[in-house]
Amino acid sequence: MVKARFYIGQLIEHNLFGYRGVVVGVDSCFNHTDSWYESVAKSRPPKDKPWYHVLVDESDYVTYVAERNLRTSLEDRQIDHPLLGHYFDRFDGSRYLPRQGLH
């Protein structure tokens, strides 16, 4: 089993596109369709490494990103996304704390 580098509630940044976000789900390996991978994952990240479900800051977009395309955000400011309250109870100043039952 591959250990994930990021965790639910962690603030991240995308290496290529520069957007900030928060992790809301972690898959130990790619867990989407082959057709999605072929059409969206243009850089062909490895399928056998962790992938993350991410709420994108200042949008209503939820994305699916390979671990190699993410880094820890250097900013601790909160993100703006309409689904934050669905996943998290609060922000502790550096990370979001998941709602009960979503860990």
Rank of each mutant, 00 (worst) to 15 (best):
25 G>H: 13
79 I>T: 05
67 E>R: 01
52 Y>W: 05
82 P>H: 10
86 H>A: 13
24 V>W: 07
78 Q>Y: 00
30 F>G: 09
18 G>L: 10
1 M>P: 10
68 R>T: 14
52 Y>K: 00
33 T>N: 11
66 A>E: 04
92 D>A: 04
34 D>K: 01
20 R>E: 09
45 P>E: 08
45 P>T: 02
3 K>M: 14
43 S>D: 01
61 Y>P: 00
53 H>E: 15
77 R>C: 06
103 H>V: 10
72 T>L: 13
75 E>C: 13
85 G>V: 00
49 K>L: 13
91 F>N: 01
50 P>S: 09
93 G>R: 08
2 V>F: 08
61 Y>T: 12
95 R>G: 09
64 Y>D: 14
25 G>N: 14
38 E>Q: 12
59 S>T: 15
65 V>K: 02
103 H>L: 10
32 H>Y: 05
12 I>R: 03
74 L>P: 08
69 N>S: 06
100 Q>C: 10
74 L>V: 14
10 Q>G: 07
48 D>H: 07
94 S>P: 02
66 A>M: 07
62 V>I: 14
93 G>Q: 04
9 G>Y: 04
12 I>M: 06
44 R>I: 01
46 P>K: 05
1 M>F: 15
15 N>D: 07
43 S>R: 06
92 D>N: 15
103 H>T: 10
45 P>D: 03
67 E>N: 04
96 Y>T: 07
24 V>N: 12
3 K>Q: 15
51 W>S: 02
7 Y>E: 11
99 R>S: 09
10 Q>C: 03
11 L>P: 08
25 G>I: 05
78 Q>E: 14
90 R>F: 12
98 P>L: 01
23 V>G: 00
75 E>W: 11
43 S>C: 03
7 Y>W: 05
93 G>A: 06
59 S>W: 06
10 Q>Y: 00
38 E>M: 09
7 Y>G: 05
97 L>W: 03
45 P>Q: 06
2 V>N: 11
42 K>N: 01
40 V>D: 04
1 M>C: 06
21 G>V: 02
3 K>Y: 11
31 N>Y: 02
84 L>V: 14
87 Y>I: 11
54 V>W: 02
63 T>C: 13
39 S>I: 11
2 V>L: 11
68 R>V: 13
88 F>W: 05
58 E>G: 04
7 Y>D: 13
53 H>P: 06
53 H>R: 15
38 E>R: 15
22 V>E: 04
41 A>Y: 03
26 V>Y: 09
32 H>R: 08
69 N>P: 02
5 R>E: 04
3 K>D: 15
66 A>T: 04
61 Y>E: 12
1 M>Y: 10
28 S>P: 05
15 N>Q: 11
101 G>P: 12
86 H>L: 14
30 F>M: 10
74 L>M: 14
12 I>K: 00
70 L>F: 00
6 F>D: 00
3 K>W: 07
32 H>S: 15
63 T>G: 06
101 G>D: 11
30 F>D: 05
15 N>A: 13
52 Y>G: 02
64 Y>I: 14
82 P>V: 05
